[in-house]
């Protein structure tokens, strides 16, 4: 199946950015293991990418695939809200349905 594609936009290597990355990795490893691809974009290095995506706030996490497009803003310190915000339940449900788990 198609992997979940996540893009995380941060502004510089600040403590907040580091914390956000750590939070996201934790969530992914726990709930989305093997199902995702994560790309981290530093806006200070590639501001044009932020312009294209019209990012205002950082950190911003964007999920485009599978649709629908979803944005979650903040340091992702609340895992339930992140999963809810990314609207991943259909994907996860279908995976469970295939009998990946006993």
């Amino acid at each position: 199946m198609n992997k979940i594609k996540l893009r995380l936009y941060i502004t510089g290597k600040t403590p907040k950015s580091e914390r956000t990355i750590a939070n996201l990795v934790k969530i992914c490893e726990r709930d989305l293991q093997g199902l995702y691809e994560l790309q981290i974009i530093d806006i200070l290095e590639s501001p044009h990418l932020a312009e294209n995506e019209k990012i205002l706030a950082t950190p911003t996490l964007i999920k485009e695939v599978p649709p629908p497009l979803r944005r979650v803003i903040g340091d992702l310190s609340n895992p339930e809200k992140v999963l809810l915000g990314l609207d991943l339940s259909p994907v996860l449900d279908s995976n469970y349905g295939k009998g990946d788990k006993p």
């Binding site: 501001p47 019209k54 990012i55 205002l56 706030a57 950190p59 911003t60 944005r71 803003i73 992702l76």
Partner: peptide
């Protein structure tokens, strides 16, 4: 943007906007 609704999950700032203006 249409469909740009977002969910807030934790602390944030408008650093991206500032970076874009500077750029």
């Amino acid at each position: 943007v249409v469909g740009e609704d977002h969910i807030i999950a934790g602390e944030y700032d408008l650093g991206a906007l500032l970076a874009r203006i500077e750029y």
